[in-house]
C-alpha cells in the first residue's frame, strides 16, 4: 500500500509538469492545426538557458523562470513569424509542410546546442535537488513538489487567460474558426504568433522546473517532443482540459510502470497507453470531457 501511494504521488507530481508540456503543445495544435515537432527541443533550449543562468549568474532556478519563459516566448514568436507564417502565405502548401518545418527547427536547435555546449550531460544541483519531506509516511521530493505547485499556478493562470480575457477568447476563436474570427476584427496571424510564443513559454517553464531534478544534453528534446505528442493525443488534439488529463495520465503510467514493471519499461508503458487510446478511444479524453 505504501509503495502504491508513493508511486501515485510521484506520478501525479510528474504529471503536473507533463500537463504543462502538453498544454503548450495543444494550444499550438488548436490554433495552428499542426503538431509542433520542435516542442521538446524548445524545452531543451529553455533548460540550457536555465543551466547558463544558474552556473554563470548563480541565480536560483525558480527565479530563472522570469528569464527562461520570456526568452522562449521570444524564440517561439520568431520561429512562427520567420519560418511558419511565410509557409502559410503560399496556398498550395499543405499544413504538413509546417510540420516538416518544425522538424527542421528542432534539428537546428539541437545542433546549435551541441555546438555551444557539446554533447556532455550537465545538471543543475541545488540544495533541494535531492531533499525530501514526509507526509503520512509518503515521501515527497521537495523540488518536484515546488515544480508541481508552479505548474498548477501556471495552468490555472493560462485557463483564466483563455476563458476570461479578450485575447484568450480570441485565441480560442481562431482555433475554432479563423475566418469568422477575422470578421470579428481578430488579426489571426498575430494570434498564431502569440500562441506559438505562449506554447514555447509554457514548455520553457516545464523544462526550467524539471532541470533541478533531471539532467540535460542536446538530444533531450526528441524524447520530450514524443512525450508531448503522446500527451496531446491522450487528451484529444487541441483540448486544453485533455492536455492536463493526458499529462497526469502519462505521469502516472510512467510511475507505475517504473515501480511495478521495471525502471527500463518506464517509457514503454506510456507508449502502450498511447496505442491503447488510439485503438479504443480515438479522439482522446476530449471525447469524454467535450472541451
Amino acid at each position: 500500500m505504501e509503495v502504491f501511494l508513493q508511486t501515485l504521488v510521484a506520478g501525479v507530481l510528474k504529471g503536473g509538469l507533463y500537463a504543462l508540456i502538453g498544454l503548450g503543445m495543444t494550444l499550438i495544435m488548436g490554433v495552428m492545426g499542426i503538431i509542433n515537432l520542435a516542442h521538446g527541443q524548445m524545452m531543451m533550449v529553455a533548460m540550457y538557458v536555465t543551466y547558463v543562468c544558474f552556473n554563470y549568474l548563480g541565480l536560483d532556478p525558480y527565479l530563472i523562470l522570469f528569464i527562461s519563459v520570456p526568452a522562449l516566448f521570444l524564440l517561439g514568436v520568431l520561429v512562427q513569424r520567420y519560418t511558419l507564417n511565410p509557409l502559410l502565405k503560399v496556398e498550395s502548401l499543405l499544413p504538413e509542410n509546417q510540420v516538416l518545418m518544425t522538424v527542421g527547427v528542432g534539428m537546428v536547435l539541437t545542433e546549435v546546442a551541441r555546438f555551444i555546449f557539446t554533447s556532455n550531460y550537465v545538471s543543475v544541483k541545488t540544495t533541494y535537488s535531492d531533499a525530501t519531506f514526509f507526509l503520512g509516511g509518503v515521501s515527497f521530493s521537495v523540488a518536484l513538489t515546488i515544480a508541481f505547485c508552479f505548474a498548477c499556478a501556471l495552468t490555472g493562470g493560462m485557463f483564466w487567460f483563455l476563458l476570461k480575457t479578450d485575447l484568450g477568447r480570441s485565441i480560442r476563436a481562431v482555433a475554432q474558426d479563423a475566418e469568422a474570427a477575422s470578421l470579428m476584427g481578430v488579426n489571426a496571424e498575430r494570434i498564431r504568433t502569440l500562441t506559438m510564443g505562449l506554447g514555447a513559454g509554457l514548455v520553457a517553464a516545464a523544462g526550467n522546473l524539471l532541470l533541478p531534478i533531471y539532467y540535460l544534453f542536446p538530444d533531450i528534446g526528441g524524447p520530450f517532443t514524443r512525450k508531448a505528442f503522446v500527451i496531446t493525443i491522450l487528451g484529444g488534439l487541441g483540448s486544453t482540459v485533455g492536455a492536463i488529463l493526458g499529462g497526469v495520465t502519462l505521469g502516472l503510467a510512467e510511475a507505475f510502470g517504473a515501480t511495478y514493471i521495471g525502471m527500463e519499461f518506464e517509457d514503454m508503458v506510456g507508449l502502450v497507453i498511447f496505442i491503447a487510446v488510439l485503438l479504443f478511444l480515438p479522439g482522446g479524453f476530449k471525447r469524454l470531457t467535450k472541451i
Partner: peptide, 9 residues
C-alpha cells in the same frame, strides 16, 4: 453565411 459561430464557446 452558415452563421459561423464559435461552436465550443
Amino acid at each position: 453565411e452558415g452563421r459561423r459561430l464559435f461552436p465550443e464557446m
